[in-house]
């Protein structure tokens, strides 16, 4: 995990929303899914996940309820709300635009200036 990139500040919410949008998950599951969908390239501090989850829940972008996990233990499952989906779309959109702009900027050559 040592060469995994630290995530950019502000992108944790986006990653969580994306991970949860693929199906309801408990906290640890969200963590694993982020690693999985980023192919292990992104790592987040485990403890930092929970304050972020609660903040999203307080903003009504995630909803949570207790359920049973794969190993038959009680766990708190998070799923996306309508507000969360809207936020995700919006953030995805702006992220793409930013990424495209950054990509174009970094590809620039002297003769194009």
């Amino acid at each position: 995990m040592n060469d995994a990139a630290k995530i950019l500040p502000g992108t944790l919410d986006l990653l969580i929303l994306k991970a949860v949008s693929l199906g309801p998950q408990h906290g640890y599951g969200v963590l694993l899914r982020i690693q999985q969908i980023s192919r292990g390239a992104l790592t987040i501090e485990q403890g930092a996940l929970y304050p972020a989850l609660y903040r999203l829940e307080k903003n009504k972008e995630l909803a949570a309820e207790w359920g049973t996990s794969e190993n038959n233990r009680r766990a708190r499952f998070y799923r996306l709300t309508a507000a969360g989906r809207r936020r995700l779309e919006h953030e995805e959109d702006s992220w793409r635009r930013l990424a495209a702009a950054m990509g174009a900027a970094l590809k620039a050559r002297p003769e194009e200036v």
Binding site: E45, Q46, G47, A48, Y50, P51, A52, Y54, K58
Partner: peptide, 18 residues
């Protein structure tokens, strides 16, 4: 170790909950 300071994050969690 991987989780970090539980107390600290609890504190942050409380802050997140207002």
């Amino acid at each position: 170790l991987e989780f970090g300071s539980t107390d600290n994050y609890r504190e942050e969690a409380r802050a997140a909950l207002g």
